[in-house]
């Protein structure tokens, strides 16, 4: 199996939520530029997939979609980054302390046999990590967001003088992939779970049918999440689902043997049966 194609879908979430449309607020980039993809960095990406080697080397091409919100925490940061301070301490601690008073000794052993002092666990952070108020992207815990910027005037309904507009937009999630490319049986997408600690561990991947050539369109439906304050001042989460079209182009070339003196019938993979 050759190179897997990764398609990064970048979205300006505040602008998309405000205009209720992805037009002008979405860009796609893939890593197939060397193989002929066009429209890199624009909304109109055509992924080029050359399936010549599907005849030589069994294994389908694989596409992966990665949705990214511009302004969200970088995806390489693990999800433990978002914990409240006391959750972080709890993770750092070993087993739960016994609830019974006086019946169990203060020093107990955990599952692997290490002694744990419940009253003074040795694994607590010595001092709480301080959140830098300037550095809003380094939210320690869920920083209470200000109002989502719905007005182009830039005025916030809830603003403290001297505050920055702390609005939190989680990474968008792809809900569904559908369209012509699926109906024609060209790509077979599915949502997979991954141990990667971003996008809540879910991502979309598709295998490509190398037998159908041509240009096919597909539609991605993306959920954009945002937080805002309602009239009572409570923070609520909301979302909007928008869709966008992109294309894949499947082409094949003329397979040849790299050694010029050898002619090889490449329909069959059994080289031993052929002659020079």
């Amino acid at each position: 199996m050759g190179q897997q194609l990764g398609i990064v879908v970048l979205i300006d979430i505040p602008a998309a939520v405000e205009s209720n449309s992805l037009a002008g607020n979405i860009w796609l980039v893939d890593n197939g530029g060397w193989d002929g993809s066009t429209g890199e960095g624009s909304p109109d990406l055509v992924c080029a997939i050359d399936v010549t080697d599907a005849q030589l080397d069994p294994g389908n091409a694989v596409l992966n979609w990665i949705p990214i919100g511009i302004g969200t925490i970088p995806i390489n940061i693990p999800q433990t980054f978002f914990l409240y301070d006391d959750d972080r301490r709890a993770l750092a601690q070993r087993p739960l302390p016994a609830l019974h008073q006086g019946i169990f000794p203060v020093r107990i052993r955990n599952l692997v046999g290490d002694e744990v002092n419940i009253k003074h666990p040795g694994h607590l952070l010595k001092e709480a990590p301080r959140a830098d108020p300037q550095m809003l992207l380094s939210a320690q815990g869920f920083v209470d967001p200000g109002t989502a910027r719905f007005k182009r005037t830039g005025e916030s309904r809830v603003a403290q003088p001297g505050d920055q507009d702390l609005v939190y937009y989680p990474d968008p999630a792809i809900l569904r992939i559908h369209g012509e490319a699926l109906d024609a049986g060209v790509i077979y997408p599915a949502q997979y779970g991954s141990p990667e600690m971003f996008s809540r561990g879910l991502y979309w991947s598709a295998s490509v049918n190398p037998n159908l050539l041509g240009l096919y369109r597909y539609t991605i439906e993306i959920a954009l999440y945002y937080s805002r304050r309602d009239a009572d001042g409570r923070v609520v989460d909301d979302w909007v689902i928008l869709s966008h079209d992109a294309w894949i182009k499947i082409s094949t070339g003329a397979p040849r043997n790299g050694f010029p003196a050898v002619t090889l019938d490449l329909v069959s993979n059994d080289a031993g049966a052929q002659g020079a």
Partner: peptide, 8 residues
């Protein structure tokens, strides 16, 4: 009070 919003 509406005010100008500093932005990141």
């Amino acid at each position: 009070k509406p005010g100008s919003v500093r932005q990141a």
